[in-house]
Design a protein around this nucleic acid. Sequence first.
DNA 1: AGACTTTAGTTGCCTTGTCAAGTGAGTCGT
DNA 2: ACGACTCACTTGACAAGGCAACTAAAGTCT
Lengths: 162, 162
Amino acid sequence: MEPKGIPGLNAEESTAWMSLMAMTMWLPAALDVQLSRDEGISNFEYGALAALAQNECRSMRIKDLARMANGTFPRLSKMIDRFEKQGWVIRRPDPDDGRATRAVLTAEGLRKVAVATPAHIALARELVFDQLTSEQVEQLTTITQKVFRAAGPDGACASRMT
Amino acid sequence: MEPKGIPGLNAEESTAWMSLMAMTMWLPAALDVQLSRDEGISNFEYGALAALAQNECRSMRIKDLARMANGTFPRLSKMIDRFEKQGWVIRRPDPDDGRATRAVLTAEGLRKVAVATPAHIALARELVFDQLTSEQVEQLTTITQKVFRAAGPDGACASRMT
DNA sequence: AGACTTTAGTTGCCTTGTCAAGTGAGTCGT
DNA sequence: ACGACTCACTTGACAAGGCAACTAAAGTCT
């Protein structure tokens, strides 16, 4: 956070960039620390379990999970191996497409998400929402949506990155 | 980004949180893709090299580098091994403290940063600053600074996480 | 000065992630 | 309807990161 300019960015942009990079370093790390200490899972794994829990059929195709979580196939495949060993998920062939596999959340898995969620959300509130006015929360939504649209899977960037 | 509420957060906070998580997933990933494709280094490694380059003595104690980059000692130690193999950095004992090691950027290393920076910054501009008004850039700075203060190394959270 | 603690870093082992190759089911062209 | 191609994974070998144990220098206490 020095007053050092970044070549190609003006002063405001330099500050914003350093501050944004700092946040993207530390916020996920803080979430990881809490989750792995209290629940033995990473933030990435929590996201996957929570995504399964939200989908009211309690399951998702691995492909969709990978896309949503920005993970590769092997990474998801191995994560689901771990989940199966824990009894949180089972693999089921997709009835609509013989190639696809669905990851199905078990009752155990659903319980795990339910147990892990409160402290996770409490930390989210502490680190983010307690720091911001409700106006700033709105601004945050607007800004992060715009950046996500550019950087996310459908962004102009993603297509150039093949 | 469904209209699905997160228990413990109101509607606006839920949207903000999902959007923020999405951004923190995809933005660093996009930077990683560009850097590793074009320069063979990760965003994390770029950050370390750039930090060394900015420090006008072209060097830093490993401890400070670790703290700044939110990395562990072993991680930094091994990263510097790789940098030494590439000829970008050399290790030098710190004259002021016999325990400490300084990572010193070589001319090669400085050149590497100089070569890598323009495309990296261009992508930063494309993904973030081109998407935002200058007012939003200011808002982004304010918001990310607040979150960083809470989640970063000096935040109330960090001290509780020992 | 000598023992104890703290600090800074390295090393080894294990887990996790990545990349490339392989498998098997669907799709498309003729 | 048969071969070629694509898609959705899985597997295996390797690289990178995390944790715990170790080394060595600095500080601290008496």
